[in-house]
Design a protein around this nucleic acid. Sequence first.
DNA 1: GATGAATGAGGATTCATTCAT
DNA 2: CATGAATGAATCCTCATTCAT
Lengths: 205, 205, 205, 205
Amino acid sequence: MTNRERAALETKEKLLKTGLKLIKKYGLENLTVENITAAAGVAKGTFYTYFDRKEDIVFEICRDAYADLEKNFYEDKSRDIVKKLTNYFDAFMREIERYDINICREWIRDVINPTTTPTNRDSQKWLFDTRTLIRILQTAVKNGELSKRTPIGAIAYIIMSELYGMMTGWCMSDGAFEPLDWTARFCELQLKPMLEPYLPRTKKK
Amino acid sequence: MTNRERAALETKEKLLKTGLKLIKKYGLENLTVENITAAAGVAKGTFYTYFDRKEDIVFEICRDAYADLEKNFYEDKSRDIVKKLTNYFDAFMREIERYDINICREWIRDVINPTTTPTNRDSQKWLFDTRTLIRILQTAVKNGELSKRTPIGAIAYIIMSELYGMMTGWCMSDGAFEPLDWTARFCELQLKPMLEPYLPRTKKK
Amino acid sequence: MTNRERAALETKEKLLKTGLKLIKKYGLENLTVENITAAAGVAKGTFYTYFDRKEDIVFEICRDAYADLEKNFYEDKSRDIVKKLTNYFDAFMREIERYDINICREWIRDVINPTTTPTNRDSQKWLFDTRTLIRILQTAVKNGELSKRTPIGAIAYIIMSELYGMMTGWCMSDGAFEPLDWTARFCELQLKPMLEPYLPRTKKK
Amino acid sequence: MTNRERAALETKEKLLKTGLKLIKKYGLENLTVENITAAAGVAKGTFYTYFDRKEDIVFEICRDAYADLEKNFYEDKSRDIVKKLTNYFDAFMREIERYDINICREWIRDVINPTTTPTNRDSQKWLFDTRTLIRILQTAVKNGELSKRTPIGAIAYIIMSELYGMMTGWCMSDGAFEPLDWTARFCELQLKPMLEPYLPRTKKK
DNA sequence: GATGAATGAGGATTCATTCAT
DNA sequence: CATGAATGAATCCTCATTCAT
């Protein structure tokens, strides 16, 4: 990596870090691109060297963290796929909580009112999440943890809908809604029965 | 009712009907106030005779229908409060589906990014819904269908979070998510256990 | 005409007059809409009550004057159509000169680099001019001043090309090019021979 | 020529060729410098090694071709200066047509709305053309083909105005305007009489 | 109650150009 | 010579809302 590349990376990090801080505090809608660049100490145009649209930053902010979650899943040694998914969703919601409510709002808004054009559809968190989940389920099928006839796509969509539903509940609940409890209950009461038909029968002898 | 009042009522109906049609088709964000008034055949300013903000129309659109649901609840002769609530939530989600996805988006957006000022906080559907639910639960307490120590507020918030979560899931799911099934499952698996501690013991003898 | 309508008309006139003055002095490209509205003493948005795009004002500025030229043509009692057209083109170029070079630039630019969308194609001076000329020639045909087999469209286009060519020459010539002389020469040397085949033969006996 | 110089020449050629192709297709205003450099396979900054401004490329594109025309003029063995000029203007307009309408638009725009600063005034085609014509006329005077009292500057300006006028006509005419016919007619009807007073009387004996 | 002219806040984005490496 | 990250100027237009008539 050359010096120039390193410098570029640093600039992007600076933008990401500053952006996260400001969005947490004020919400993206109350920020201008200039607010962010000024706080990061770069020129307004520099923002667009790294992001296509103002909105893209809220996805980039979490990309690495969520990529890590996928890795963790693959390294999870729990024997049971339901347990592994439960861990994954728990970690998923923990991250959501960590990023805080203003960031979460943006992720939901991007579902409800996408500002997306075909070009940058790759900057939508929910699509990224859904694809990740599909990959995870496919791996489980490959590993024999789930039956080959598992309707992966449908299941992934249902689960993501539920997760984003919880996120909405969290945003509006003002504390009454506990995402982690809810996730645990969902995994226990709904995920398990949903996957049951596709689990390997090894136990049954 | 004077002629003038009758005319006024008609104008409002026209706006509401036209608005509903257009929002279903294009989404509120793609409409201007002028689009709506022009289609309704009135002047732009007339809109503001009936609504304080552009967004208010998406609440007014459904106010009567949802007021009816509350009435229906009170007339529901099912003996069991759980059953009555189940009926209520089923009807609630049926209305959501009937109003269609673009309208539903607006209701959710109003939760995620309220454009509300103190003055017109009364035009938020989710607040209206929550208050209705609280009234319903209070009535149930009054009628002895629920214990006096029922934490009405918390329960109402949790339920509303779940309902709006489902709505989000529906908006993003592109059909994979069946709101009515989900509602039924929710009532069966979560509502019942949640209310259980507060049900009257009359049956047990 | 109500008071309100009169006031509206005045506002538009104010904008037109102020705009003309400023464009003459600075050129449209060096002006912002706000420059114009501020000088006219109205709000920025008011500009858009009367014009769709910034550029539209340079057409509106001359619309009435050029509409008058067409009227004058119809009232011109010269017997000869060539003479009448010569008068018309002379008046046409006189107006161009009167509006001055910065305005003329805009009219040409609109030919070379239209900023036009289908909606406001009606705000292009050259199209307006061409249509007027076609109408004029059609009238001449109707009146028997030109043969029915006159290729009106082609002739109109050729003439307009020549007129706008002269305008270009004028803009770039810094005074070496005399539009009126040139127009006269054009009418004498080119227009006459071009129309000759379509003139009535009454003279020839 | 060193390797480096050769490489530099190639880079410039590549930019020129790519630029011509793209401008023909899309027009310069719809292109970014990056579009051009990317298509040419070089970095954005490289553009500025060879051109001072984005616009300069439309002049450079034709510089050599038009320099050739001047050479051809000097080698033209036609006896008559009017004939030689007629040949020259014919070749001139042929080149215009060859470069195509989008390039021609740029050349005209540069006359109407120069983006020029004193530094790069040398990159304006029309100035280049005018100077060439002046040189040509001066040569003719030197050779005795034109009288010493020929008002070279004025004549050159008038002719250039006419040529650029034709170019405008061509751009707007959508085919109705035939530049070559027009040029021929111009030479016959206007150029000849204009030069007549300054031709040598040698023929008249 | 209806009208519609007037208001004016509001901000993303592009891209030519520079210059340190 | 080549690179490409950084710069920052430049500004139009929409449209919700108000309010005098």
